[in-house]
Amino acid sequence: MTTTIPTAATAKPPATAPRKSIGRPGLYIVLVIAALFFLLPIYLLFATALKSPDAINLATTWRWPAALNWASFSDAWAKIGGNLGNSLFLAVVATVLAAMMGSLNGYALAKWKFRGANTVFALMLFGMFIPYQAVLIPLFQFIKALGLYGTIWGLILAHVVYGLPITTLIFRNFYADVPDALVEAATIDGAGFWQIYRRVIFPISIPGFVVVIIWEFTQVWNEFLFAATLTNTSAQPVTYALSQLAGGQAVSWNLPMAGAILAALPTLLVYILLGRYFVRGLLAGSVKG
């Protein structure tokens, strides 16, 4: 880490020249401008959500509402509250299933390497990158053939399966860091595949589970294409309901804005409270295949 910034000046005079030109005030100016870019949409989101429909006027878009209209939220809740419930159920069940299976897969792949394990793993991973448009029509037919079309369970099945590559990946890399000596010691004690998982691997998996659960929960919660094609009105998750709220003939923008806040809240909270793990999931998804 660059904790040497103050001393750098004394080390080499030429090095100070550019440093001064983008010195501390410059750094903060850059950061503030960047922060404005990221936060202005959020300001507008809240400012619009808290206006009453007739106070929304394009010319005064940026003004904070004179009177706060909290009713936007209850109105939005009335429209998408049920869908929030669907999303919660969907995300929790799909995440738990995908995480459990991913943990076992990762354990099997990392600690019991068999011939061709890497090839199998690479083939599994490909599933995480495919454009879902390329499987949409057969997926739809398959779910229908299972009799799950329109229900939340069809959607859960799709999310669990397409979530397997990433959960397996994260757990595999996580378990790869567990010293093989631990496993070997357990085998010498006569423990088999399942005992080792239960006694050695699972108890140290909590951070892995946190990363996977946060990542997968966010993914499932935010997904749209499957939501739009696999569910009926009564089982639709919140992303779809929100797109209806905003894409409809809504002139009163306070409603979709309040809806967007409600729909974003769960993942946003998870991110703010557990951001560290969120970033780890983010990095795990890309840096190492």
């Binding site: 009926n232 009105t233 009564s234 209806q244 709220l245 894409g247 409809g248 003939q249």
Partner: peptide, 12 residues
């Protein structure tokens, strides 16, 4: 059960 899907002239 009154199922409605909103959006411009029924396209959705």
């Amino acid at each position: 059960d009154n199922a409605t899907v909103s959006g411009g002239a029924g396209t959705n």
